[in-house]
Design a protein around this nucleic acid. Structure first.
Lengths: 163, 163
DNA sequence: CTATGTTATGTTATAATATAACATTATTTG
DNA sequence: CAAATAATGTTATATTATAACATAACATAG
């Protein structure tokens, strides 16, 4: 999870403080309430782990953390929670490296661009209307009904380029 | 593999005939020659299987086909061949469904957009400069050096929407 | 042309990611 | 409370991919 800030392109730019995580979890709870869905202890716990992670995390990493927290957990435990969170737009899945990260803007559905550093794993969620518009146009041309657009850009982040 | 045709946006639009596959394999051989790389029997065989596939295929599907062809083969057999073909830009990997398909334009490196039908698996490779430009711009803004952009759009193709 | 190094392939085992199937528990609702 | 539904627990297994080491094929210098 990352904080929304006011660049010319919307983006996430900081690691979340404890307080920010708490706010995000509250927003998630409200959202589930509004949709008449259960924001269970497990789902909250998984979302919190994803939020607190400095970088996108793998499902088995989350599984380890769940186990360490004392909870009984197996792969389906974490995958089911992640599936729920994905459906609700609270987390994203990066298919290029099979990791999960909290969504920067859970309020409204959107197409996001991810800049994934191949060196350090740091990942920026960016919102780019230009890309979305272009994909919409392209899809229209092929009479293709978009369900989901995965735009995952791998490369070197600023920090890793420097060093 | 799919044929290049002259839409306003470059795209692949047909399933390849035997002849087209032969031409593609010859181009691949030439390209390897030029680069002083070995276009071995295995690599050629894997590329041909990928080309002939109606749709993007999984590695283990290719493995089965290799075995059926009488060749001794294990997972590394096919993954190594695929890695080579990926490096040479002769095939693409779709990370959203872990499949491989022949590149429509192996001549020059490029960023491609894939329209992947979630119903029938049919996949269009499309080239969209607008998307590339926008991603380049976005990367620049973050001082991010792009290595690879995976743009995979899942949805319903024209045929599947209709029915 | 053969010795030597290098590249490619064969082979076995295993890692990493994800789901199926069924049992149990918790929650909602009639 | 009873029945229905939704969520979680649990065991097993499917799917995708790589590690590690042995052998074979090819390239090239002598």
């Amino acid at each position: 999870m990352t904080e929304h800030c006011s660049h010319s392109d919307l983006t996430s730019c900081t690691q979340p403080s404890s307080e920010q995580v708490a706010i995000f979890l509250q927003q998630a709870a409200d959202l589930c309430d509004k949709r008449n869905l259960r924001f269970t202890r497990l789902r909250k716990q998984v979302l919190e782990l994803v939020c607190r992670a400095e970088q996108p995390v793998g499902a088995y990493h989350l599984l380890d953390e769940l186990k360490q927290s004392g909870r009984s957990a197996a792969p389906p435990t974490v995958y089911r929670a992640l599936d729920f969170l994905l459906e609700q737009g609270l987390v994203h899945r990066l298919s290029t490296n099979n990791t999960y990260l909290a969504c920067a803007h859970p309020q409204h559905p959107h197409g996001a661009v991810f800049l994934v550093c191949s060196e350090c794993g740091h990942t920026q969620e960016v919102h780019n209307e230009g890309v979305n518009d272009e994909l919409d146009r392209q899809a229209k041309q092929f009479d293709f009904a978009i369900q989901h657009a995965a735009v995952e850009v791998t490369g070197l982040c600023s920090r890793c380029r420097g060093s």
